[in-house]
Design a binder for these strands. Structure first.
Lengths: 253, 253
DNA sequence: CTGGCTCACTGGACTAGCCTCTTAGACAGT
DNA sequence: ACTGTCTAAGAGGCTAGTCCAGTGAGCCAG
């Protein structure tokens, strides 16, 4: 899953041993019915049973540690973390790729809250950034563009104005999901003027520091914008994907 | 669950070398202005520069790979992933430890939405789980307990009933933040009966499939429960950050 | 110009060994 | 009996050295 491969071709990567070990250890934990707090077999023991060297096993253990599955304690052993949640989160993210509607749903939830907070907490500087974004968007649309860049700026400015790093991180998380699912753009190219108008309403509410109005305006905006099919995945020539630019940027929301 | 570390004491864990290496490599990437697609120095080279063995460096590279920062290719080298975003999320989490109010805020945002969706989407089975959680909580409180386990069950059931894996993942994410910040409990021990009553209201709304009512009930519940000081946040001596044991279980919300 | 070969370089993995830390049990001293 | 100290076995941490296996640039013959 993931990575380049525009035309279906994908750089084959030889599987690493430690990855297999992670799988096997995970399976072992399940089959052995180990519970949080329990110890894994000793490294030397495990390595022998799995038929690998300690060094390689150590890599697998590091991976499991990073995934939050275990907690390795010097002199004691590898103990199962109290909750396999991290693992499930990460696994859930990568494997069972989340579907579009759910992502839109989560994003709208956050955006509405961000709009409310932005209205309540914005500084004058935040407001300037928001209005600057509107200017950019208006100019772009005037020039025939769909105003994607300005749109992005706008939502970033709103997020910043909410002054909540936690919510901002959650938004970043969602942005990643969108990337992983490779949805280019959730927004439709049409009606950029309408979109601009609803942005303006949000900005007005934020300027007036009216949280409820901001929430309503954001909700209306999202509903306006998200009742459209996702764009057909503009096929970019070759592997072009590294560019942090391109892609997802504006989801239209 | 689990009894260790009740009094805010935490098992000190000797820092692992590979963790430091991860930090240093991250710093190097930043300082060297490496961009996605660029190569890291060769393993032998890096190991010498950092003054560690290749085996240890290999562990650090595995960690970075799991974190999504790099992609190690046999015969080529370690190439920077197209998006360093994951790293930034993780770094943001670890460094600039998010503060309590923001976390509560984010959590309440999600919980309210989850309650709404739960009301709209619950199956009969979901409802059974929710009511079972209430039973457990009631029994616990009857027995003099503060009902933490039932509380946890309840919120898990609500989350499940909302049938949104994305939002569920965000909740898991927040749970992790709470772990990392080591907040013992956001909830107060007092008034478990009131808390149970407000849980019942939420359950009623979900049963009646009334999304708005569920949202209101959840909001009221959170406000009832969260107007208490957070636990004094045991000042961590050194860099201690491996969440590990203790705390969080139920955040009272 | 194409195809095949070579070789230097990169990561993958193993082995053997020594270090530090943890823990439990023996063995005092009180 | 209780308590503190010591010790040794066993756990993980890390290193150094060695060999194997991909990669890709460059050379050279067809």
């Amino acid at each position: 899953m993931e990575k380049t491969a525009r035309a279906g071709l994908e750089r084959v990567t030889r599987p690493r041993l430690y990855e297999q070990l992670v799988e096997q250890i995970l399976a072992y934990i399940e089959s052995a019915q180990l519970r949080p707090g329990d110890l894994l077999p000793a490294e030397r023991d495990l390595a022998e049973r799995l038929g690998v060297s300690r060094a390689t096993l150590a890599q697998a253990l590091v991976a499991l540690e990073v995934l939050g599955v275990i907690d390795v304690q010097h002199g004691t052993g590898a103990v199962l973390a109290r909750r396999p949640s991290v693992a499930s989160v990460v696994k859930g993210l990568r494997e069972h790729q989340s579907r579009l509607p759910e992502i839109v749903e989560a994003r709208s939830t956050l955006e509405v809250k961000l709009a409310t907070l932005a209205a309540e907490r914005r500084t004058d500087q935040d407001l300037s950034a928001i209005e600057h974004a509107l200017d950019v968007m208006a100019k772009e649309i005037d020039g025939g563009d769909r105003g994607a860049h300005g749109d992005e700026l706008f939502h970033e400015a709103i997020t910043a104005a909410a002054h909540s790093s936690v919510l901002a991180q959650l938004m970043a998380f969602i942005a990643e999901m969108i990337l992983e699912t490779r949805m280019e753009s959730l927004g439709q190219p049409g009606r950029p003027e309408q979109s601009l108008a609803s942005h303006r309403k949000i900005a007005d509410a934020v300027r007036a520091q009216d949280g409820d109005a901001a929430a309503k305006a954001m909700l209306a905006h999202i509903e306006l914008v998200s009742d459209v099919e996702p764009a057909p995945l503009a096929a970019d020539p070759l592997r072009g994907d590294n560019a942090s630019s391109s892609g997802l940027e504006s989801t239209g929301i």
